[in-house]
């Protein structure tokens, strides 16, 4: 049984093929499919696509991992200092964190690039920091959750506050934290691409800078297409892994 999604995809592909391969091949907006195939070859041979893709890919997923680890580390420090007050602090902490959500990400990106010019790790720092308020906010989220009840129960058993917070409360927050990172991961791709583009660094953003300079529509189109396919596949794999790890959520 062919799914509706596949049917729509094939339909769009056929329409695209008829319109831009045969009817309007030199339109200056959408390149013909044959040119897209040739562009893939050009990207690999002249733009070192594979190694640049590896660089951007690593930056995206290392940043996601770094974001998770930094959130966990900050949570551990906060509960080490004030475990007893964690639940009282959560509302005010969330409202402080939410103010960061309203700052346009490009401003933070530009600021970091000005503060730390020529640093090859800029893109990692930017992608990690940009999503940190969101991740911390997910961990501090207590409304409509049973976290406090868990805390009372395990505390009454004589288990130390730090142990309850790190081994139970943080784990209870993990599904929401990681789901938000997975859902935002195409946005993390954008942040990394923009940083590479501005810095003209190694990575897909660097390639985009060059092809943008030459206004090569077919190459921009091909990169966009390849990245969309890659991001969708990785997103599906991540969701599968997430469902496997957090089966209890």
């Amino acid at each position: 049984m062919i799914s509706t999604k596949v049917k729509i995809f094939v339909f769009v592909l056929v329409i695209y093929l008829i319109l831009f391969e045969f009817l309007f091949p030199a339109n200056g907006v959408f390149p013909p499919v044959s040119v897209i195939f040739l562009s893939v070859n050009e990207l690999v041979e002249h733009y070192n696509f594979i190694s640049n893709l590896a660089s951007t890919f690593a930056a995206v997923y290392i940043s996601i991992l770094a974001n998770y680890l930094v959130t966990k580390f900050l949570f551990a420090i906060i509960v080490w200092m004030k475990a007893e007050k964690f639940f009282e602090m959560s509302e005010i902490t969330q409202s402080i964190l939410s103010t960061f959500f309203n700052i346009p990400f490009i401003l933070i990106t530009l600021l970091i690039l000005v503060w730390l010019p020529d640093l090859i790790y800029d893109k990692y720092i930017i992608a990690t920091l940009l999503f940190l308020p969101q991740s911390l906010s997910n961990v501090f989220e207590n409304k409509n959750s049973d976290k406090k009840e868990y805390y009372y129960f395990y505390k009454s058993l004589g288990i130390k506050s730090n142990q309850v917070m790190n081994k139970v409360i943080f784990r209870l927050s993990e599904p929401k934290l990681l789901l938000s990172l997975i859902k935002n991961h195409s946005f993390i791709w954008s942040v990394i691409l923009i940083t590479e583009f501005i810095q003209q660094q190694q990575g897909i953003g660097g390639i985009l800078f060059t092809v943008f300079k030459y206004q090569d529509i077919s190459l921009i189109f091909t990169v966009a297409l390849l990245l969309s396919i890659l991001v969708s596949i990785v997103q599906k794999i991540l969701i599968l892994l997430y469902d496997k790890i957090y089966f209890w959520k």
Binding site: D146, E149, Y150, F153, S156, G158, R171, F247, W248
Partner: peptide, 15 residues
């Protein structure tokens, strides 16, 4: 010293 509180919500660790 040893009072255990079992809340309304179920609190066994789900994983």
């Amino acid at each position: 010293n040893n009072v255990v509180y079992i809340p309304t919500e179920t609190v066994s660790i789900p994983w």
